[in-house]
Simulated assay, not measured.
Amino acid sequence: MDELVRILQDGNHSLVVAGDGIRTFDGQCISDLYGLLTEHPDWLRDASVADKVVGKGAAALLILGGVRELFAGVISTSALGLLEDSGISLRFAEKVPYIINRKGDGLCPVEALCKDCKTAAECLPFIQGFINKLRI
Rank of each mutant, 00 (worst) to 15 (best):
113 L>M: 04
115 K>C: 08
39 E>K: 15
93 A>H: 09
43 W>G: 04
58 A>N: 12
121 A>S: 12
82 L>R: 08
87 G>H: 03
76 S>M: 03
98 Y>E: 03
82 L>Y: 13
111 E>L: 05
119 T>N: 10
14 S>K: 09
78 S>H: 11
18 A>Q: 15
98 Y>P: 02
2 D>A: 13
13 H>C: 15
25 F>I: 10
19 G>M: 08
89 S>C: 09
115 K>I: 09
136 I>R: 12
114 C>M: 02
15 L>M: 12
103 K>D: 12
113 L>C: 02
130 F>K: 07
14 S>W: 06
118 K>T: 09
71 F>N: 00
48 S>N: 08
46 D>L: 07
36 L>R: 05
99 I>P: 00
129 G>V: 09
111 E>K: 08
12 N>A: 14
51 D>F: 08
101 N>M: 02
61 L>Q: 06
110 V>E: 00
39 E>W: 05
132 N>T: 12
70 L>G: 04
90 L>N: 06
93 A>N: 11
11 G>L: 13
91 R>D: 04
12 N>R: 15
112 A>M: 09
102 R>Y: 09
99 I>G: 00
30 I>F: 04
65 G>E: 01
10 D>S: 15
90 L>I: 15
82 L>H: 11
87 G>P: 12
73 G>W: 04
24 T>L: 12
98 Y>A: 03
110 V>K: 02
39 E>M: 11
97 P>Q: 02
72 A>C: 08
23 R>E: 15
117 C>G: 03
116 D>W: 06
130 F>P: 04
107 L>S: 07
90 L>P: 10
135 R>H: 10
135 R>S: 11
130 F>H: 13
133 K>W: 07
110 V>L: 00
28 Q>V: 15
39 E>C: 09
118 K>L: 14
26 D>I: 12
78 S>G: 07
6 R>V: 06
85 D>M: 10
73 G>D: 02
125 P>G: 05
60 A>P: 11
77 T>R: 15
17 V>S: 09
102 R>V: 13
77 T>K: 15
13 H>E: 14
115 K>Q: 13
83 L>W: 13
65 G>V: 01
96 V>Y: 07
59 A>I: 13
68 R>L: 08
122 E>S: 07
72 A>M: 07
8 L>P: 11
33 L>S: 01
134 L>W: 10
123 C>Y: 02
66 G>L: 05
62 L>T: 04
123 C>W: 01
32 D>I: 00
117 C>Y: 06
55 G>S: 06
87 G>D: 06
63 I>S: 07
68 R>Q: 12
68 R>S: 14
35 G>F: 08
131 I>M: 04
123 C>P: 08
10 D>P: 06
92 F>H: 11
125 P>Q: 07
100 I>E: 09
88 I>C: 01
57 G>Y: 01
53 V>S: 01
90 L>S: 04
53 V>K: 02
41 P>W: 06
79 A>Y: 03
104 G>V: 14
56 K>D: 00
113 L>G: 01
37 L>E: 01
115 K>H: 11
32 D>V: 01
117 C>K: 06
97 P>C: 02
65 G>I: 01
77 T>W: 06
39 E>P: 03
91 R>V: 10
135 R>V: 13
43 W>Y: 12
128 Q>Y: 04
39 E>H: 12
41 P>I: 04
58 A>C: 07
86 S>C: 11
